[in-house]
């Protein structure tokens, strides 16, 4: 895609989530809801119809007591880059160019006013990160005054998803620009979930910038589809070739194994090159 914004050098915003620190409290989910004007209904029991840009899943190792272990895994949009930058599962299929991959930030955007609700992107996303507005968004009286003016609410019939709090990026970018076109500082652009996590499990920043904490934790390898060099780190469904920007960390072998599908005789990490669309 043609890019209209100009930036100093391509960024690759991404996240590292330490699953050994995550307690599954759900603060990130709540923060995300509030920050991004996510709509809700009176009855949210059917989770297949709830909009949760960031969803915390619960996994267990399926072992009987006393070996039972539980892990919570927060799942925002993974901002997939695909096998070649921009060939995300969802972006590559959207017929109306209503979701786009920014080569300057690595963020997968969603253009609500352009999406016509075909939901092909939802079928394409293996992480279930995309949500459809099945209903008109309605906020209880008075509550619309709590909506953030920086994020447009979505109408019925379109798809929405985590934007890595892109409006925060825009604010930081504008500020940096007015202050002498200086680069954006790490602390200036942080997502709402990162701020909200009480145990500091989420770290956010530019994966290409070695001064950013996320880069130092993950140590992504640009020559190998940004695979993490930190042995504690893994990505979800890495072998599908989605090349995601959300990394998870854990000391527990079973947790790392649960990030991908493996045949019985395969060891995590011994897999071949990832597959993916070729165009």
């Amino acid at each position: 895609m043609k890019q209209t914004q100009s930036q100093q050098r391509p960024k690759r915003y991404g996240m590292a989530i330490d699953l050994d620190k995550c307690t599954g409290c759900g603060s990130c989910m709540v923060a995300c809801f509030a920050e991004n004007n996510v709509s809700f209904r009176e009855d949210e029991t059917n989770k297949l119809l709830s909009i949760t840009w960031l969803r915390v899943y619960k996994m267990t190792n399926d072992k009987p007591f006393p070996d039972t272990d539980v892990c919570y895994i927060p799942r925002p949009c993974q901002h997939c880059a695909g096998q070649h930058e921009g060939h995300s599962p969802c972006v590559s299929v959207c017929p109306a160019t209503a979701t786009d991959y920014s080569l300057y930030t690595g963020i997968v955007s969603q253009i609500y006013t352009r999406c016509f609700g075909c939901r092909y992107c939802m079928a394409a996303c293996p992480y279930h990160a995309r949500y459809f507005n099945w209903w008109d968004p309605v906020w209880p009286t008075g509550m619309e005054r709590t909506l953030s003016p920086n994020v447009s609410p979505r109408m019925r019939g379109v798809v929405e998803k985590c934007s890595f709090c892109f409006h925060r990026y825009q604010l930081a970018r504008d500020k940096a620009y007015t202050e002498g076109k200086r680069p954006i500082r790490e602390a200036e652009y942080q997502t709402a979930c990162t701020h909200a996590c009480p145990s500091g499990a989420i770290v956010f920043g530019d994966l290409n910038d070695s001064t950013h904490q996320v880069n130092r934790i993950v140590r992504p390898d640009p020559d190998n589809h940004y695979k993490a060099r930190n042995p504690r780190a893994f990505r979800l469904l890495e072998r599908l070739g989605t090349d995601t920007k959300v990394y998870y960390l854990s000391d527990r072998e079973w947790v790392r194994q649960a990030g991908d599908n493996y045949l019985a005789d395969e060891q995590p990490g011994t897999i071949g090159p990832p597959r993916g669309g070729s165009h």
Partner: peptide, 23 residues
Amino acid sequence: IDVGQPLRGWFIFWHANVHSMLT
């Protein structure tokens, strides 16, 4: 009937992403 915003159906032609099978 299937698309969420039928009135925007023409976007598929107007803003066509030529790499999408649906286009």
